[in-house]
Amino acid sequence: MRGSGEIASEAEVRHGLSVTLPRLWRYGFVLSRQRDWADDLVQQTCLRALERHGQFQPGSRIDHWLFTILNSVWLNEVRARRVRFGQGTVEAETSLEVDGAREAEAKVLAGQVMRLVGDLPEAQRAAVFLAYVEGLTYREVAAVLGVPVGTVMSRLAAARAKLADRMSDGAAK
């Protein structure tokens, strides 16, 4: 067993990337709302993770480390590109895969929810995705986003309130 001061090998980071890749892509898509941009974000995240594999601390959660890297890459890209939302987006229904007997109904409902979530401000969208899709705790979301836990709680509360208002107003129809 390693001591706490040891660093991860490149092979460990490669393995972590391989098992986390679909989740990274989903997070990249939630942030960017564009398939091509999500691909670029994941590629840059992989490159940065491999270049900095020595910064990963064995015994900690590699998915959290990778989400943090992706978030950092996203913020750098936003600053660099001055993102224009709404260009080249993909409809939520085309990005969802739902199985089961009630596939059509579930797909429509999921599409409606994804559209509503997609309309949230970026900070709320990221918090909603990490907490409710990825299942991270508030503390973990705060670490990934680099904000206090209270900020995460505020963003999630505001997002829930906006979603509830829109659902009750029939915006999901």
Rank of each mutant, 00 (worst) to 15 (best):
V83S: 02
I69G: 01
V108Y: 03
A101C: 01
L75Y: 02
A38E: 06
L116W: 04
Q124F: 02
V152R: 09
V78S: 07
V144N: 02
Q57P: 00
E103C: 08
E140T: 10
V141K: 05
E140A: 12
S95I: 09
A104P: 00
A126G: 00
V133Y: 13
V90F: 04
D119G: 14
G88D: 12
E122S: 05
A8T: 11
L50W: 08
H53V: 05
A104F: 03
R61G: 00
M153T: 13
R52K: 13
V113W: 08
R115G: 03
P121R: 12
V90H: 06
G146R: 12
G16L: 12
L17D: 03
L130Y: 04
G150W: 06
Q112P: 00
V133K: 11
A127F: 02
H64T: 15
F67M: 15
M167S: 09
E134Q: 15
A158N: 12
G111A: 08
W37N: 00
R139W: 09
D169T: 10
L163M: 11
D40K: 11
H64N: 07
R81V: 05
D165F: 06
L75S: 05
A38V: 07
D63Q: 12
W37Y: 06
Q44D: 15
R2G: 02
I69N: 02
A142Q: 09
P58F: 08
E51H: 07
Q44A: 11
V30E: 14
R115M: 00
S154T: 15
A101R: 13
L31V: 01
N71D: 12
E93R: 15
T89R: 11
I69S: 01
C46S: 12
R102E: 14
V90C: 03
S95Y: 09
A101T: 13
V152H: 06
V133C: 03
Q57G: 00
L145D: 07
H64F: 02
K162Q: 13
G3W: 10
H15V: 14
A92I: 02
M167Q: 10
Y138G: 08
V19R: 15
F129I: 00
Q34K: 14
E12V: 06
G150Q: 11
L17G: 06
L24N: 03
Q57C: 08
R125C: 01
R155D: 10
A171Y: 08
S60Y: 03
Q34C: 10
Q34I: 06
L75F: 07
L109R: 15
L116V: 02
T45S: 04
G59L: 08
W37D: 06
T68R: 14
S95L: 13
V30T: 15
A157Q: 13
L116N: 04
K173I: 09
G59R: 09
A8N: 04
L21Y: 11
T94L: 11
A106T: 05
Y27W: 09
V141I: 06
R160E: 13
L136F: 15
P148R: 14
L17N: 07
R33M: 04
L24Q: 07
V128F: 11
R61I: 01
R2Y: 12
V108G: 00
D169P: 00
T137C: 01
P121E: 15
A106K: 10
D119V: 00
V78T: 12
R155I: 04
D36G: 10
E93K: 13
E97K: 10
V42S: 05
F29D: 01
D40T: 13
W25P: 00
M153V: 14
